[in-house]
Amino acid sequence: MAMKNPRNEELITAFGQNVRKFRLQKGLTMNELALECDVEYGAISTIERGIVNCSISTAFAIAKALDTPIEKLLTVETIK
């Protein structure tokens, strides 16, 4: 039987904070980012708040829409 993958809460939270930071730097609303990524507004909201662990394809779409290397979105730092 396959084991369930553990959630890395620190990474999920940092990813969401980085998405918000880069989205605001680009001057986009959550709705505009959602439209660029072809996802629901609520998906961006829950990602930014660190509630959900999004798929690789969604993470890639977000990075592309933000014109940011995905590595920057996956950086775990204290964001102030």
Rank of each mutant, 00 (worst) to 15 (best):
L74K: 04
R20Q: 10
L73D: 02
E77N: 14
T13I: 15
K26C: 00
E32A: 03
A34T: 08
L35W: 11
I79T: 10
A61V: 08
F60V: 08
M30G: 02
A14Y: 09
F15T: 04
E9P: 10
M3W: 14
L24M: 12
L33W: 04
I79D: 06
A2R: 15
T68S: 02
Q17R: 07
N31T: 10
Y41A: 03
F60N: 09
E48G: 01
G50H: 01
T29E: 09
L24N: 12
E77M: 14
A63K: 04
Q17G: 04
Q25G: 00
T29K: 04
A2L: 13
M1Y: 14
I12Y: 11
A61M: 09
N8M: 15
S45P: 02
Q25H: 03
R49P: 00
T68P: 03
E71K: 10
V76G: 08
N8F: 15
L24T: 12
M30T: 04
A14H: 07
E36V: 00
I62W: 01
I44S: 02
C54W: 03
K21G: 07
N8I: 15
D38H: 11
E48R: 06
A43M: 13
E77Q: 14
L28V: 15
P6M: 10
V39D: 11
I51W: 00
L73V: 08
I51G: 02
F22N: 05
S57N: 00
K80R: 13
I12P: 10
M3P: 12
I51L: 09
F60D: 09
L33Y: 00
A61S: 13
E32F: 05
